[in-house]
Design a protein around this nucleic acid. Structure first.
Lengths: 209, 209
DNA sequence: TCATTAATAAAACAAGCGTTCATTTAATTC
DNA sequence: GAATTAAATGAACGCTTGTTTTATTAATGA
């Protein structure tokens, strides 16, 4: 056999991406074989090479897509006006929502950096830095205008990011806890962590979610 | 050739563990080959099998050792007396110190769980749960006696653990920042995060470090 | 209808994988 | 000094890996 009836390149490529994210998140990039991936898609291994020149190209593609989606997500969620507290809450809420929705993709991006070549690693880290800079800026400006009481904005940014990304490690939706409830608690913890003055605007962030 | 002059089983085994932790932390368990590991030790691949029946046995050994060392470390650092704030600070300080000292080992334990068999994974998670329970207990008791103001002690425990373990992701010793300085800041962030009443005993924890 | 292009199968490739085996040498014991 | 044990070698095994090549079929446009 060769080309199968009803086959469509775009659909196949999307199916490859999808299966790859799931398999790599579960077993790790090195552990997933091209044959295993092909079987999951329902295709022969050689067919994968029409869409991705190498296995690493596929990984890199997934990672770039994840980072660009993350940045785009924040750019559309970022509040036009509002104080530093409101901006911080918007950042945290958007970050948690995004990562819970893309648990597998996040795992790939966090665990498989070492499988990238030097230049590609740099490209991913550059995007990551661009994103994290948003949080650092919020924290620095909040510290300057007295909204927050923090020791070091760079360190605080790392602490917050690790804390809120960590949600995906233990949280599974469809349990007795909803994403909104978890977000609410993490928002409260974050605001205390940065020494924010009492905030009555707590629920504003989640209203549109 | 065969047995080499001055060869010693105990030393070789220790060298294997050491090289394995470093290689696996850097490249990942699946990516590290037995030949690569053997070369790092300065021995032939077959020699590794005198000490570890399979590659997975080696990984499991490293992980169990890490978890047992972590638990032992807390058991000897845990304060005999003192309120919940003091206990929480001792926990955080010990956790950060331990993990910074064993960055590679920590990475292996956090990243390679998926390469273990079901039973072995359970064994590791059991130890991990035993350790995390210590923090949950401190938080729960602190919430009950009014030392802390938290929403959910289990959730707060996860948030804190992810935050303080995350230090190893960005922190490199021998820079402009010492472990003690980082610990000090993380202690302050943690105490605010749990809504602890003002604590004047801040430096007590680090005095013996 | 017929050439063209897109999508896939099938088979092969060389390289590398974890692991085993028989053997050899160094250290230890009697 | 001979016998025994500990430590390691070197070659091989069967299998799998990522990838390439070649051939074949389905969809597309003139």
């Amino acid at each position: 056999m060769a080309r199968t009836a009803g086959s469509d390149g775009q659909r196949t490529e999307a199916a490859i991406r999808d299966a790859a994210v799931n398999l790599i998140a579960r077993h790790g990039y090195e552990a997933v074989t091209m044959r295993q991936l092909a079987a999951e898609v329902g295709v022969q291994a050689a067919a994968l090479y029409r869409y991705f020149p190498t296995k690493e190209d596929l990984l890199y593609d997934l990672m770039i897509a994840h980072m660009e989606a993350l940045i785009a997500s924040w750019e559309s969620a970022r509040p036009i006006r509002g104080g530093c507290s409101a901006r911080l809450m918007a950042f945290v809420a958007n970050h948690i929502r995004f990562h819970v929705e893309r648990r597998h993709s996040t795992h790939v991006n966090n665990m498989e950096l070492r499988s990238l070549s030097h230049e590609r690693l740099s490209a991913i880290l550059k995007l990551r830095n661009r994103y994290e800079k948003e949080l650092r800026t919020i924290l620095r400006e909040g510290a300057e205008d007295g909204s927050f009481l923090i020791e070091d904005s760079a360190m605080t940014a790392m602490a917050i990011i690790q804390m809120i990304t960590g949600v995906i490690v233990w949280f599974r939706p469809d349990e007795r806890l909803s994403v909104d409830e978890v977000t609410e608690t993490y928002l409260a913890m974050t605001m205390r962590l940065v020494g924010a003055a009492r905030h009555s605007e707590k629920t504003h962030v989640l209203e549109r979610a």
